[in-house]
Structure formats: structure tokens, C-alpha cells
């Protein structure tokens, strides 16, 4: 807890919480990253489920790099947003649920990537689970403001 209190007093947290542009700028980054990581992995997952026509070769290449870029944007913007209200966020059930969903979603992307690379079969459970993780992450993320 002492660490979180310290975090809230850093220059970054002050910029996020009190400057005119900090918070809206980070929210903009966060929704851009969300569109990339959730959007691209949904395209990949739906393809693996046979709904869309993208192939395993496409999944390994540029699409996955784009998805990871989205995740990087969101990890960074998310950490910055977290610093502004760190002590509150760790007590929010919605926030903790969101974090869990993101960890599961990202692990799904990583497992699909490694299976694609080694030409192992992926099946339908992983992509279906991945879709569910991102849906739940979005829902939990929105509910942070309400619960």
C-alpha cells in the first residue's frame, strides 16, 4: 500500500490526474490500443473459428505485430492511468476482473502465436476463449466507472 501511495505522488501521477491534457490524452491512447489488440485478435480468433478467411500464415505475420503494438500502447497508457488513482484501483472489483481478463486474453494470443509458428493445431477452444476474454475485459473496464 505504501508503494501505491508513493505512486500517486509521482510526477507522472500528478500530470495524469491534474493537468488539462494528461487524462484525455491517455484515454485516447487507451482506446486506440484497445481497437488494435481487441480488434485484430478478434479478426484472428474469428478466422480460426472458420468465420473469417484469414489464414494461419497471415496470423503469424503483420497482423500479430499490429495486435502486440496495440497491447504495448495499452500497457503503457494503462500503467500511467493507474498511477493517478492507484489506491482506488486495487480495491475495485471491476478493475481487478479486467486485469484478469487481459492476462487470459494475452496468454491466448501468445499460445495461438506459438502454435502457429510450430505448425501445431490450434482447435476452437482457444479462439473462442480469447473472444470471451476480450468481451469480458471490455465489460469490466467500462464498469470500473459504475461499480
Amino acid at each position: 500500500m505504501a508503494f501505491l501511495v508513493w505512486l500517486e505522488q509521482t510526477a507522472l501521477a500528478t500530470w495524469v490526474g491534474e493537468s488539462l491534457y494528461g487524462y484525455p490524452f491517455l484515454l485516447s491512447m487507451h482506446v486506440t490500443g484497445l481497437a488494435l489488440i481487441v480488434g485484430i485478435s478478434s479478426v484472428i480468433n474469428l478466422s480460426l473459428l472458420g468465420v473469417l478467411p484469414v489464414t494461419a500464415r497471415d496470423v503469424q505475420g503483420s497482423l500479430l505485430r499490429l495486435a502486440w503494438a496495440g497491447f504495448a500502447i495499452n500497457a503503457l497508457s494503462g500503467i500511467a492511468l493507474f498511477t493517478s488513482q492507484a489506491t482506488y484501483f486495487v480495491t475495485s472489483a471491476a478493475f481487478l476482473s479486467k486485469l484478469l481478463c487481459i492476462i487470459c486474453g494475452i496468454m491466448t494470443v501468445a499460445i495461438i502465436q506459438s502454435r502457429c509458428r510450430s505448425n501445431r493445431s490450434i482447435g476452437r477452444v482457444l479462439p473462442a476463449f480469447g473472444l470471451l476474454c476480450w468481451l469480458a475485459a471490455i465489460a469490466a473496464g467500462r464498469l470500473i466507472a459504475y461499480l
Partner: peptide
Amino acid sequence: WPTLEILHFVGLSLLLGAIVVVDL
């Protein structure tokens, strides 16, 4: 309202995810 927001975020993910690939 929160349910509509969640659906709006799901919709933007599908729209942007697909359109980014097509546009690139």
C-alpha cells in the same frame, strides 16, 4: 447506459479491427 457503452466498445473493436486490416 453502461450496457450500451460496453456494446459500443465491442462494436468499435470489430469495426476498427477489420477496417485497419483492409485499409493497410
